[in-house]
Design a protein around this nucleic acid. Sequence first.
DNA 1: GCCCTACATGTTTTT
DNA 2: CATGTAGGGC
Length: 741
Amino acid sequence: MSQLLDNLNPEQLAAVTLPARHALILAGAGSGKTRVLTTRIAWLIQSGFCGPQGILAVTFTNKAAKEMVTRLSAMFPINTRGMWIGTFHGLCNRFLRAHHRDAGLPQLFQILDSGDQLASIKRLLKTLNIDDEKFPPRDLQHFINGQKEAGIRPAAVEAWDDYTRRRVELYVEYEAQCQREAVVDFPELLLRSYELLERNEPIRRHYQARFRHILVDEFQDTNVLQYRWLKLLAGGQGGEGGACLFCVGDDDQSIYRFRGAEIGNMRDFERDFRVTDVIRLEQNYRSQGNILDAANALITNNTKRLGKNLWTDKGAGEPIRVYEAFTDTDEARWIVEEIQSLVRDGMGRADIALLYRSNAQSRVLEHQLFSSGVPYRVYGGLRFFERQEVKHALAYLRLIANPDDDTAFTRVVNFPTRGIGARSLEALQDAARTWNTPLYQTVPHLSGKPGTSLAQFVVLIERLRQETRELPLHEMVDHVIELSGLRAHYKTEKEGQERLENLDELINAAANFSAEVGAGQIPGEQPSETSAVLAEFLAHASLEAGDHQADAGIEAVQLMTVHAAKGLEFDVVFLSGLEEGLFPHENSAQESDGLEEERRLMYVAVTRARQRLYLSFTQSRMLHGQVRYNLRSRFLEEIPEGLTKWLTPPSPRRSFVSEPSTRYYNPGAGKAAAPAMPPPPPQKSRDLGGLRIGQSVNHARFGDGVIVAAEGSGNDARVQVKFAEAGAKWLMLAMAKLTPV
DNA sequence: GCCCTACATGTTTTT
DNA sequence: CATGTAGGGC
């Protein structure tokens, strides 16, 4: 026990050993948040305040949940299975499976991930003959999820205009379709759970009595519905006999407002539960002083804060290095050279992160890393269970588990192709509407001979179900991949090798999964029904889409967006593209509080670094096929001068373009519809020494070209010339001899 | 049923 | 620029 609390700082100790009251822990970046959470759970149990079954700990990502379980198991021997530790969605899934009847769901309901949901909505619009130009499926998905995440069913939507009323009708239709097909989307998992708890008093009372301590990670990321769910589970506001809510979060790291996170929940929580225990964890164990000072200085520019100041006893450390490049390519080249030099000095590549605001920026960086032969790894992109071949295999499995799943049906009815075209599918869909049956059940109704392709498809699925009934999960998956023709299909495909490997990997995943499920079994107990294991596996596949990329072992430089970097830390961090319009992103200017969210994002980025932080920006950047000239980011100006060291001569924050984000169109590269190129600012024409943009020039080495852009002034004046032979080059006017042609 | 081209469309992302 | 998608043509 004493060991458990060793080495905690006073604030951490206070948080861990708080009496049984509601509490809000404001945990700054790198302040030992996860440690406090897990130690609190261990402390509660070891002190006898509560049994493992009285704990509910909820996180946002599977990774965080797993981390918590791992750390707990390392602290003391405990059966973590008895505890409810998981993601909001994972826990709701568990809850709904346990009470599926009361929730109005079949036991083996399937879970739609966002892709499935979109496909389902598209299909709905098609069957209802609705113009998807007028109702873009993506918008509709966003609308429906937005309502659900606010806890609003169609009947309760406030619709003042025809368009919204129409969307509400579609919301109704969509719900009906999901119910018919026995599928549940992500927000539905939460809303159903919430509604069941709200309406069913015995169940509510049961869980309110069971959970004594509810611990919430990343509380600043909760949405409206998640907070209401927590309130309900905790037994209402400050209610006696309910659970204690222990919410850990950092308002300064709230960067997911765009997907429904409601920072207001933190204030609401304080008010609703009359929280008197607010503990700030401000000692940072990650970064050197200069880095923290920069982060603190930045974030004080935000107005809506609960207030917090990070500190460290590590000393100031190195200055923050700032670099100004001419172009994005130059920036990338410099970063790669710097990385190579760091690696030569013994820095591990995996300890170096390369961060950017948007994914589009990674390409230039990747290109440079690749051509320099520096191993790198990009986070983001498709994950394992989202790959098409894996989704196809899963769709067959879903049909076996639940033939009513029309999304799965349409996905594979003709994949691999078996001669079922749009024509026969339309007929089937019409018939399904007439008979009001799922597609699968509609097939026999069709007035075709039993030998039709559709009938054969049903025979295939029935056969698969029969033949795999007794098989262990991984053999079942193997069998399905084989008999569905998927394996044969990818064997003939030119680039099918990787897909085949992924299908094998799916079989492995199934084997691992059933081994884990089996491990949780009490010896002598009947093994679970294959169908139940299958349903669990499918839920697992939807809820946990897997790692972004598999080869984590390689010593490689880590590339990712700032969002993806949240929660991670690195010895060295390069933050690139610090330009107005890019970071802060131009789209954020329109949203209220958009700039503050961008600044929080910047705060997250800066606090990823342990020892060394590089900030870089460029004078010109190629974006969407156009060269753009941006001012350097205002966030750079918000870092006190004494903390930084400029690797390039500090320049005034001026560009010859007065307005940020002004676009100059590249003659030749631009489209005809592009607005006319703005005239160069008058004071520039002098500095160009008689040259102007659009002028044809000759260079001794590069030959003939056209001036397409210019920047800087006096001795710094540069022009970009697009040469017929040599391509586009930036040239210093003072150096290059350009003669007008 | 498949391939090709024209065209639009470009933040951030987990479950 | 570059990537994805919708729709036409074979």
